[in-house]
Amino acid sequence: MYDLSSVLETEAVSEVRPGTSILIAGPAMTGKESLAMEILAEGSRNGDGALVVSTGDSAENIVEDYRDRVAGVNNLQLGVVDCRAEGSGGGLADGDTPPGLYVHKVSSPGDLTGIGIGITKCLEALHGAGAEEGRMALISLSTMLTYTNRETVFKFCHVLSSRLDAAGYIGVFTIDSGAHDDQTLQVIKQAFDGLIEVRDGDAGREARVMGLTDGPTDWSEL
């Protein structure tokens, strides 16, 4: 079981079953990405593997931020699939990385096969390094939706969730709820076991969890 309750203070996430995929949805600038990264970082502090699939940030930036986030952790096992359309060029290249770091570059957020191969290679490397448990973050589905369409993204999420389930990993996927119509959001939600909604409340950032326990949790401060 994965315990996310130190990141998100609710019982609903204190025992998350391996193989669970969770959608993190909220308007722009509400800390979805940082929540996803913190869920991964908490795992790294416990020796879990971490895998980031990024459509916006470069592998170099992700690695740097992540190292800061988990400062002091020994034997960090981090995989990054960098699928920005800008392409590679400089920095961390495939295969030329320090121990414990696995980077795979893909030419576009719409190249799902490439992303799938990147994820497969990173999972293989993480498993090879002994990370039997691990957490994956995909940031963000909104970008993938602009490169493809919701049918493709829905199916991709379903297949990827199944793969994570087989690996015993958990996954968190972010989506900007303000960037898509209701139909799209409803369809994408169905590909996941649970949903974390975030918003800017009166008292600051708030989150609630749905789908992992019987009813939705109350909004609580993040």
Partner: peptide
Amino acid sequence: ELSQTMGGVEDDADFITAIQQIGGSE
């Protein structure tokens, strides 16, 4: 039914071909 087909996308080759079939290639 989906979770019982292909052992629920158990191995890498199943995973990649399932994604290829979805489309969304470059």
